[in-house]
Design a protein around this nucleic acid. Structure first.
Lengths: 110, 110
DNA sequence: AGTAATACAAACTTTTTTGTTAGTACCTTA
DNA sequence: TAAGGTACTAACAAAAAAGTTTGTATTACT
């Protein structure tokens, strides 16, 4: 495994989980997909999320370079979020997790 | 999206995260891979994990049908963990996360 | 009799994550 | 003048996850 400057191992899985490890990030990324989504739109699309968690996650993902944020200078405000070229690389993870999640659901039904 | 008996939506991603959403589960599953691993072995292989978290996760994963636990009636005790047929289906998720994690690491280095 | 090895268990504390509530700025329209 | 719509912010509370410490059973070996 790779080491950092202090010669401590860096685990790719751990590094990834710092970015997409929370309760909501994957759901948000999934709803954005290859589109542009407004804040209010995401609020509706991600069921159960609070406004606080939504902005918190959006900010974090923007900070990690996963999301791009475009604010229009209008009143009332309009902000659009979309995946960056890095963000797009999260989508295959989601696909795999969905496959597994569906297996779990089918398994439960027995 | 699928609905359960109470007509509430079930999200495959959420369901999957209930099983593999913690800090350690993916690392543990990754270390087991297609082999058999003893408790003590995993303790060494997963750096930084406490004994408590290790058994807690192992128990949980056994409960979800991801891991198989085989205890030998010996003293000192010997217990071997391995992936079930369901557990094996987590490996592609890990592969994808590793790809993404490595991208993050490379990105940081600039 | 004392120690070592292995795989845990239980009680408790700390840390992290998530949720709740109330409030802001700005312009438009009634 | 007052209310409405949008994207936030901040303070605080609750819940969930993770960490720490101490202890257990069993047998073999010294």
């Amino acid at each position: 495994m790779k080491k950092n400057t202090k010669n401590v191992s860096i685990c790719p899985v751990s590094e990834a989980l710092k970015v997409i490890g929370g309760k909501w990030s994957l759901q948000i990324i999934n709803e954005i997909g290859l589109q542009k989504r407004r804040f209010g739109e995401l609020k509706r699309l991600v069921p159960g999320i609070s406004e606080k968690m939504l902005i918190q996650e959006l900010k974090s993902l923007v900070g990690f370079g996963i999301l791009h944020r475009k604010a229009y200078k209008e009143i009332p405000p309009r902000v659009e979020y979309s995946l960056t070229e890095y963000g797009v690389k999260v989508l295959p993870i989601i696909s795999q997790i969905q496959i597994f999640g569906n297996e779990l659901i089918n398994k439960k039904e027995n």
